[in-house]
Design a protein around this nucleic acid. Structure first.
Lengths: 212, 212, 212, 212
DNA sequence: CATGAATGAGCCTTCATTCAT
DNA sequence: TATGAATGAAGGCTCATTCAT
């Protein structure tokens, strides 16, 4: 049989990913409670019953959607650490460029929105996102900045706040894209935002001797 | 006060505001769909039926909640414009301090979260927030920065992006407070964040001659 | 207002009993799983939603139905003990006549059928029925028979089995009525059955000196 | 046996019986509606689809389960008639001993429970059981008792009720076993029950001249 | 024949909304 | 006005049945 021939029934192994993909779209658009399983199933191209062959409950699907977005990003964060041992500027420029690209090719924006929106109803999801992803990323950057401060590269000030300042425009760009662009707002060009931001912020953070 | 006036029952004129207040809390905690009218009524101290004496539908209450948060903030924005004709640094320091205070004494954080979360289900709310509040505020700051650029105070670069960079940590602080602090994350001290941020960013934005 | 005037809405206090009554009929007829809440509500003269104002789940209704049939019968059993201190014959004749009447004016038949049918799915209900009702009743009669044996009134043999022999035709009459009469079987006249049975069995149980 | 015959897979001819056996267990445990085809198939050691190769519907399986329990018992009843032409005592002792054994080595208990439980949903099953089995058996015993009454062996009274009295403890023993023993009730020793019962009841039924 | 993934009708349960009091 | 019991439409989930393999 032709290996590329499309089968009437797709392989079982593909289904969960297809359902999670459809669910991500619906959850991001409607929120957890307003998302209807009928619609998730329809967008996944399966019947409502089929969804329950792979997931126990609607909450299960939600957890799967939010959970799957963690691992790859955690990996990215880990990679960032090792990447740039040199001066802070190089590190941040590299990291931010990398993340900005990631964010544009990945549905993190929608998932982040879901995490924020449903934190009250799914605190354990907020906790996992914080513990495994957000505070990890923040911690890595914070550590790099502290190291740079120790080397005299960065002015005094809270390294954790510096790290947050650095990341904020990225987060806001995502929220902007998810929230206001669909109703007609002018989008932000995320790479442009981050490039300008890193240069400006670095210029403000670095001691005179450390500026490139 | 009239001696015969009932003392134990607040005047009916207060009811709508009480309901909106209760609804704000519930919507912010649960989201629109997961919020129950029973709970809103209970927290407002009225019966479920009474809510319908003042609002047509649940959506109506939601619109009232989100809408009421616009006017005072718009006023703030307007005030910002007129306030500081002098050098950009003074303007931004003033504005940011003002907004940071506002944000701590006001439930804007929760409302913002609701707007973001329900943008897909209530696009007209997202639109109103964008048109009347967010893009206005952004526009005002952008204009001030453009003016400063024209005066040679600020380095080249997109004024709109500079404005967004400036505001971002505030937004992220709010989201952090609403999302991650309740599950154990270390909070950010919003005034401290904004103070450090404005100084750092200004230092990076301003031309050498303009630095204070 | 006229005390007998029918109200459009019946009083809240009556509802649970009405629902339990309707549920008893439906559960007895269809069994637990095949009973539909729609039908219970319809027969109770309320909407489906109203049922959930008084009961948490369908199982709850079932437990209420089965549970309500215990207390009055337990009381009957207790009363039986104290009633007849004299010779066994008088006691049994009295008890059996009483119970036979009870059984005809009460839905115990249907409830018994439900308990039997759903014992596998609701073991705790079977347990409660056994512990509080069935084995109590059996125990009381057994004790009376043992006492009579001690007095030399009753022939040797297991008193517990004697007690069971005594009650059995009543149980079978009920099952017969619930199961086969609706499909055309000739009914048993329960008082007639029990009268003949008690006389026959007594005649077989009693020692020659004790026969009346 | 053919050397080429497959050894590990039972012949397909056995499948229906295996399915009916598994279904009997599940139906008896859960009732018709709560029994799941998945579980029946699993216990039968076949796939869910395979069940539908042998039975049209779930109801079909149920009918097969209940129906298969009729024929052998009917045969037993017929055999009983011809067996004992002598005095009633011998007949009843023989019949009861036979049936008591049958009942312990056969799943009639469970099937009876199913018939009772589902009489409301499957009236035709209740009818068939009544017409072909229960009322036949009752009729046979009734006729024997009437004949004995005509011979002056048995006291006056309804022969049909005498027959029912005779059988009742057996039925109740079965119900007891199915319902209360699984939740901790002390079981009844069915042969002991029936032996004691027959002797006691006979002693009460028979005229003085007929007692052995 | 046999499998088990897929289907979709049906039911329990929730909750925004109504309305008699 | 105010109440809260009542309604009924809607949605999550189950499971008997089908069908491509």
């Amino acid at each position: 049989m032709d290996a590329g021939a499309p089968k009437f029934r797709r392989r079982k192994a593909d289904r969960p990913a297809e359902i999670v993909g459809a669910a991500l779209a619906v959850f991001a658009e409607k929120g957890f409670a307003a998302a209807k399983l009928d619609e998730i199933a329809r967008r996944a191209g399966v019947s409502k019953g089929a969804v329950y062959l792979y997931f126990e409950t609607k909450e299960d699907i939600f957890r799967a959607v939010v959970g799957q977005a963690i691992a790859p990003n955690v990996a990215t964060v880990k990679a960032m650490v090792a990447a740039h041992p040199g001066p802070l500027g190089d590190l941040l420029r590299g990291v931010v460029a990398h993340v900005a690209k990631l964010v544009e090719t990945t549905p993190v924006g929608g998932v982040l929105k879901m995490v924020v929106a449903e934190a009250g109803n799914f605190p354990e999801i907020a906790r996992v996102w914080h513990d495994q992803l957000v505070s990890q990323a923040l911690g890595v950057v914070t550590a790099a900045i502290e190291a740079a401060q120790a080397r005299g590269e960065v002015k005094p000030g809270s390294a954790r706040i510096y790290a947050m300042e650095l990341i904020s425009p990225l987060v806001v760009s995502l929220i902007w894209r998810e929230t206001f662009v669909p109703v007609g707002a002018e989008p932000f060009d995320i790479p442009a935002v981050m490039t300008q931001h890193v240069e400006t912020l670095l210029c403000g953070m670095l001691t005179e001797g450390a500026r490139v």
